[in-house]
Design a protein around this nucleic acid. Structure first.
Lengths: 272, 272
DNA sequence: GCTCAAAATTTCGCAGGGCGAAATGATGAG
DNA sequence: CTCATCATTTCGCCCTGCGAAATTTTGAGC
């Protein structure tokens, strides 16, 4: 279809508002005004339309607005997510319930990773955190570095080859193979990755681990924390082990989903 | 907030279009025109806006239009789904991949069940099937009947008491306790439920099983098939066991998610 | 390859729907 | 109680979204 119309302005605006509402648990009119640049009467009008449609609830007295369960109708037709994301969602929620900090899952997409699941909206202490569908560098971001460090050598060589020609500023270190090899080596030794300290935001840091299956990386799992809330050492002591345990469980769940028979005679034929 | 504006027409329309796109894998302009009642130029204009925003892709030559992975940004803030839904999603997808027919998961909500997950968009052979967020009768629908039949006696008595005053036509049988008790007894004996044959659509049927935990029903899982594609006996032979096996796995996953320690010393203290 | 029904796309004049500055109201920190 | 700030409401205006009609495209059937 060759586009015959310009985008419908109020529709584009309403999706910007809804997307913003999905980024946190509760959002105010002011928050939406700031995030979208829309005049407040416009924000209110669109909010009221979303409330009328059932996708949003709340008002000022409740501290703001939030999405309702009905928003699942707006994405229920998309099931193309990786099995690792399907299997990992509940574990990420479990981690946020246990530790309160936000957790995310990312998968490889060409020469970067994409956040496919995030519990940012469920965490009351959310540093600026990659929102869902955000593409993150394999070179400078924790979620990406965990992928690069733990994927098979042949895959890493291929990815690094692609990254050498990348013009993205955050991929710059890929053009210094020796320096970056040291980074990769350190990550492999310690079993987890962290964001390049040169990359914004500077008030937070994150820790990521790979989700492995048969020496392949299915995806990566990470948390983010405020530097003001704990030291790096405290964060490592607190998060690395639970991240690794959860990653192992996610991998087990993927295994089971891929191999469990659903009929008794399938089981019989396998043991037969 | 007291509503100060009428809903923005084009916004309401665009969500109706997007919701419809989520109901199936691929949708045509004609399909959307029929489902929403909107004139085709209006449908095309809204579609182009959704494409421009990245939530939809495709065109006539691809057989129609479909939602993209970006729609997950429109619901990512909602995480209030029951753990049974989180745990069950991947299993439902697995079932559809294995059997091609659609599968759904529902949970209790007051005096009916609500479909919280459905693989209808992933199944090329989708009979009219309950879409996500649809409320279904406990009395006449398979997903609801499976709940009623297998929940604890005390809970069933309470639900039946509520249902006796229901004016919904599909709950009518709740007012004939003896007749309905026979239905419940049969379902318990055979281990699965089916939709009341008097309820539309008549060209399909479904089979549902409970997802049990400690004698409580966490939710229900079902499939739908065309009567023209197989006999009732063939459907029972094909689906009941896999449904029951998948339901057992889902329940196990819920158990593990609720109880697994994420730190080694938690594990130590438990075994200590 | 042609016909033709049906679906898809495009045009464009029009009017009313959506807009946002300004005004007013509500809230809560100090 | 004051007052800064956020929330809500008003309402005149204008340009955005509309949809009938026209045109184009598609593919089934022969």
């Amino acid at each position: 279809m060759m586009a015959s119309y310009p985008p419908v302005q109020s529709v584009t605006r309403s999706f910007a508002v809804l997307k913003e509402l999905n980024r946190r648990k509760v959002t105010t009119v002011h928050d939406l005004h700031v995030a979208t640049g829309l005049p407040k009467p416009t924000v209110v009008r669109l909010l009221e339309t979303l409330i009328d449609a059932g996708y949003v609830s709340g008002d000022r007295r409740q501290g703001g607005y939030q999405v309702t369960s009905l928003v699942t109708s707006l994405s229920s037709g998309f099931h193309g997510d990786h099995l690792v994301v399907e299997a990992g969602r509940a574990w990420a929620l479990l981690l946020t319930r246990r530790f309160v900090w936000p957790f995310s899952i990312a998968v490889l997409d060409k020469d970067c990773v994409v956040v496919r699941y995030s519990t940012v909206p469920d965490s009351p202490i959310s540093p600026f955190h990659a929102t869902i569908n955000m593409r993150l560098s394999l070179v400078s971001r924790a979620l990406g570095r965990a992928y690069l460090a733990f994927c098979p050598d042949s895959e890493r060589k291929l990815l690094l080859k692609m990254l050498k020609t990348s013009t993205a500023p955050e991929d710059a270190m890929a053009r210094y193979p020796k320096q970056f090899a040291t980074v990769i080596k350190t990550i492999r030794e310690q079993g987890f990755s962290e964001r390049d300290p040169m990359v914004e935001p500077k008030n937070s840091c994150n820790i990521a681990v790979p989700i492995m299956q048969d020496k392949r990386v299915l995806g990566t799992l990470c948390t983010t924390y405020f530097k003001s809330a704990m030291t790096r050492k405290e964060a490592i002591d607190l998060f690395v082990e639970p991240l690794q345990i959860a990653a192992a469980h996610i991998a087990e769940d993927v295994d089971r989903l891929q191999s469990v028979p659903l009929v008794e005679d399938d089981l019989t034929s396998k043991t037969g």
